[in-house]
């Protein structure tokens, strides 16, 4: 029983950064912008988040630093890809490479330092319920926030007029423009939201997951978040399934190795990717049977006045 609870807690910790980063990217992509710079924004968020927490002693301020850093990074992207209509794929890749270098520079002075990680909530009695107690009532703030975030994004995209307009920009920017919507401004906000989320997801790593900063500590999580958005066919609900499934298989394969089940570890390490792709592909087939990519995704839009 305790082991199951421990596993669930580890799964939540592993899934949360993926969920937060992917949620932000989902909004950006629904507005029609493909930002491949998630990894770069995340790692800068990690460096700045750690710096903020180390300097002020506050995890909250650290998280704020991460959000601001990610947003600033995304503004560089917005300036290039939206303002100057540069190719989005190239800009996004450049942002990642830039971010990895920049984070090393920012973080250089903090390598080897450690902080007290984010505190876990503890509601007496409730948190002591076996199995689900600590999962529901004993997590750190990031985990609760990530759930609220994806729920909020779902509500925004499908239940508000603003969300409808954002999706319209992603599906047909010419029509949205013709209707008088400021496509580029909407996309800029969406990209900034994506950056803020990536920055927060990055900050989660040194603030809660492994409380120290090391260059390259995101170790490809930004790319996984990007892939999750695609495989969830841009649907928030499926994104939740994908992120938690990925985290769950990652943790379970480690436990399976510890138990010594005898399956080659190389296969086990590939399993999270394999399982997530298969499940999400099956989910999309069962529902729609076609691609649901925002039709204008990744295309340049220059308003013709």
């Amino acid at each position: 029983m305790e082991l199951v609870e421990a596993i669930i807690l580890a799964v939540l910790a592993a899934s949360t950064p993926l969920l937060i980063a992917a949620t932000g990217e989902l909004v950006a992509e629904r507005s029609g912008v493909l930002n491949l710079g998630v990894e770069g924004m995340m790692i800068v968020g990690a460096a700045c988040g750690f710096a903020g927490a180390w300097l002020t002693g506050s995890i909250f301020i650290g998280a704020l630093f991460g959000i601001i850093a990610g947003t600033l990074m995304s503004l560089i992207f917005a300036l290039m890809a939206l303002g100057l209509a540069v190719n989005q794929v190239a800009t996004g890749l450049a942002l990642t490479i830039f971010g990895i270098g920049l984070s090393g520079l920012i973080g250089a002075g903090f390598v080897g330092e450690r902080i007290t990680p984010a505190v876990h909530l503890y509601i007496p009695v409730l948190a002591d319920i076996p199995l689900i107690g600590r999962v529901l009532f004993g997590e750190d703030g990031f985990v609760y926030f990530s759930v609220a975030l994806i729920a909020g994004v779902w509500w925004f995209l499908y239940r508000t007029r603003a969300g409808l307009i954002l999706r319209a920009c992603g599906d047909n920017h010419v029509s949205a423009h013709a209707l008088g919507y400021p496509v580029l401004r909407i996309r800029t906000f969406a990209v900034m939201f994506g950056g803020a989320c990536a920055g927060l997801a990055g900050a989660y790593l040194p603030l809660a997951y492994t409380p120290f900063f090391i260059p390259g500590m995101t170790a490809g999580r930004g790319w996984i978040a990007l892939a999750l958005v695609v495989f969830s066919s841009w649907q928030p609900g499926r994104l939740v399934v994908g992120a938690y499934l990925f985290g769950a298989v990652t943790i379970l394969q480690l436990h399976a190795q510890g138990w010594g089940v005898g399956i080659p570890s190389q296969f086990m390490s590939a399993l999270p990717y394999l399982a997530t792709v298969i499940v999400l592909v099956l989910l999309s087939r069962a529902r729609t049977g076609g691609s649901t990519a925002p039709a204008a995704l990744g295309t340049v839009f220059v308003p013709d006045r």
Binding site: L205, A219, I251
Partner: peptide, 11 residues
């Protein structure tokens, strides 16, 4: 991969 190494240690 600090995250994965931490997860392995937890497991």
């Amino acid at each position: 991969d600090p995250g994965k190494e931490a997860d392995a240690a937890k497991a």
